[in-house]
Amino acid sequence: MCHFKKCTMALVFLLALGLNTLCLADTIKMKYSDHDPPGGMRTDFVKNTWLPEIENQTTGQVKIQEFWGGALMGSKEILKGIGDGVTQMGFVYPGHYPGQLPAHTILKLFPRGPSKFENMVWFYRKIYAEVPEFKTELENANVMTVMFTAGLPGAFTGKNPLAGIDDVKGDKWRAGDKWGLRFLENAGAVPVSVPWGDVYMALQTGTIDGCFTNYDGLHLMKFDEVAPNLLVSKSLWYAMPFLHLINLDYFNGLEENVQKGILKASEIAEQKFAQTYEKAFDQVMSEQKAAGYTVTEMSEADIAKWENADKLEELQAIWVEEAEKAGLKTAATVMAKVKAIHAEATAR
C-alpha cells in the first residue's frame, strides 16, 4: 500500500512538472523598444494600455520585456533593429528614415489635416491599403505596422509674444525636418536646424527664438518653460504617423491565434487612443495656462497663411522630383493618391 502511494505521488509530481514545462514552453517572450521615456502621452499609453492588452488578448501567452528611453536602441537604429530581430517590436518615427521610407516623407507636405485621431488613423489605414509603396517600404525592412498612434498637433512655442503667425517673421525658429523649416521660411522666419536634445538650451541662450514641433513633445521637454508664448491649433495635425512595428518574419512565424491576439489588441488600443489624444491636448493647454504661459489659438486666416497654398504646391512638386531621384519612380502617382485620400479624411 505504501509502495502504491509513493508511486502515485511520484506520478502526480511528474505530471505537474510536465504541465509546468509545457506552460513555460508555450510562453512567448517578446522585446519592445522605444527611444522615448515613459511620462509622455504616447509612451504612457503604450506602457499602460497597449502592451498589457497584447498580453490580455493572447491570454497571457505573450510576455513583453520593455526597454524605454533608448536603453536598447536609439531612434535612428530601431528600424534596422526590429528588422534584424534585435527586438521583436518597437516604436519608429518614419521621419528619421527619409532614405529607407521615402513615401512616408510625403506626409510632411500636408500641414493641415484631420483634428480627430479616429480620422487620422482612417487616413493612415487607407493609404496603406491603397498606396502600396507605403507597405512595400516596410516589408523591405522586414517589419509591419501593428498599431498607429500620433503626436498632438504641431504648435509654436516662442520666447517673444505670438498673437499670430506674422509674429514669427524675422525671428530664428527651429523645426525638426527640412519641410518644416521650409514652412517656417515661407512664413517669414529665419529657419534654424537644432538637434532635438539641444532645443531647450538653444531657447534658453537665445540661439533660437522659437520651436515648431508637436504640442505634447514641446511640453514634455519643457520648452514652454523658456519659450512661454504658444500658438496652437488642432488643425495643424502632426501628419507623420507614429509606427509601432513588429518583425515581419517573426510575426509570420507565430501561431495564428497569437497573431490574431496581437492584431486585436492593437485594434482595441487604437480606438482607446482617440480619447487619450483628445484629453492630452486639453490637459497640456490647461497646464500651460495654469503656469502663466500665454496660449493663443490660431485663427483660420493664420492657418491658411501657414499652409500657404501657392508655396505648398511648389513644395509638393519638389518632393515628387526629389523622391523620383531617390528611386521612388512612382512618386507622382503616390502624391496624387495621397492628395485624394487626404481630402477625404479632412472632409470626414
Results as ranks from 00 to 15, higher is better:
L51K: 01
L14E: 09
L236W: 15
L328V: 06
L263T: 14
G83R: 04
E287P: 00
P52K: 00
S115T: 08
D84V: 00
K279D: 00
G69M: 02
T333P: 07
L162D: 08
L243N: 02
S75I: 04
V192P: 01
R125F: 11
K63V: 15
N257V: 15
N160Q: 15
K337G: 07
A326M: 09
I78A: 10
C211S: 14
K178F: 02
Y238W: 11
F242W: 02
V168H: 14
Y97N: 03
E77P: 04
F242P: 00
H244V: 06
G180P: 02
E297N: 04
S75W: 03
W237T: 06
E53A: 04
N186I: 10
L162G: 04
Y93A: 01
L248D: 05
K6D: 12
A25E: 05
G197K: 08
G210A: 12
G164A: 14
D44Q: 02
G188L: 07
G206A: 13
Q275W: 10
R182T: 07
D209W: 15
N56T: 12
P102L: 13
M30I: 03
G85K: 00
Y250W: 04
Q275D: 13
V320D: 02
A269K: 00
A175T: 03
I246G: 11
F117P: 01
G217A: 13
F67K: 06
N308I: 11
C2S: 04
A301R: 08
M240V: 06
H342Q: 15
I341K: 06
K325V: 08
G176C: 03
V92F: 12
M89D: 09
E55T: 10
M240E: 06
D282S: 10
R112W: 10
A280T: 08
S75E: 07
M30K: 01
D198C: 04
V190L: 02
K311W: 06
C2E: 03
D171A: 13
I64E: 09
Y32V: 11
C211D: 13
K126E: 11
L184W: 06
A239H: 10
G210N: 11
A304L: 14
L203C: 13
P161V: 14
K222M: 13
F134W: 04
G253Y: 14
F242N: 07
G113T: 08
D26H: 15
R174G: 08
M335N: 06
F123D: 00
S193P: 12
G99T: 10
A10E: 13
G180N: 00
E225Y: 15
R348Y: 02
A141L: 05
K234R: 05
T145Q: 12
D84Q: 03
N56F: 05
Q288R: 13
V146P: 04
L51E: 02
I127L: 12
T294E: 07
C23Y: 08
K159Q: 11
H104P: 04
A336M: 05
V284D: 02
L15H: 11
I246T: 06
